[in-house]
């Protein structure tokens, strides 16, 4: 299967679930915007069709734009109508074809279903996402700390933009 046809197959598979699809022909890349409740179904569709493999799960933090100068890590004054979000990218690859499932979850409701029942190897990626971005993965088989030290405080997610290493670990010495 050439990369071009692989992408077409992926497009057809994901059509029922996608909110939007963005194609970049030259890079053999297809970005599919999903709502979090469609994630499991979409991954299942890919899995059942044996489309590619899960190459990585990447988190990207999108803090709401801050207005006002008294901004600090915990009590920021935020622009109305904009909410801090974490964007999660599930990157699937087949040959040169790259398929990115993009989901956005707000801080206040940062939850996603696990895909480990379909792709067992996702467990490490999901654990990393939980630790680094504070996205709760429902149903993931193991929730133990993977990378952060045992004494790392709860609720501090290092890869969120608001976390500035060296100052947020209040109460524990560096």
């Amino acid at each position: 299967m050439s990369s071009q046809t692989a992408l077409q197959t992926a497009e057809e598979l994901l059509k029922p679930y996608a909110m939007e699809m963005i194609k970049q022909e030259e890079d053999f890349r297809l970005d599919v915007l999903l709502s979090p409740d469609q994630l499991h179904e979409a991954v299942k569709a890919l899995h059942d069709a044996r489309w590619g493999y899960l190459s990585a799960i990447a988190g990207v933090d999108h803090p709401a734009p801050v207005i006002g100068e008294d901004a600090n890590a915990s009590g920021t004054v935020q622009e109305k109508g904009k909410e801090s979000q974490v964007e999660v990218l599930y990157v699937f690859c087949q040959g040169a074809a790259v398929l990115v499932l993009r989901l956005k979850v707000p801080y206040t409701h940062a939850e996603l279903p696990t895909v480990c029942d379909l792709i067992p190897s996702a467990t490490l990626y999901e654990r990393e996402l939980m630790e680094m971005f504070g996205v709760e993965i429902h149903g993931t088989p193991v929730k133990d700390r993977l990378l952060l030290p045992d004494e790392w405080p709860e609720g501090v997610y290092p890869l969120r933009k608001a976390t500035i290493i060296g100052t947020t670990r209040s109460g524990s010495e560096e």
Partner: peptide, 10 residues
């Protein structure tokens, strides 16, 4: 595979 956060100061 171990990368992201551990900064030693002091």
């Amino acid at each position: 595979n171990d990368r992201m956060v551990r900064i030693n100061r002091g």
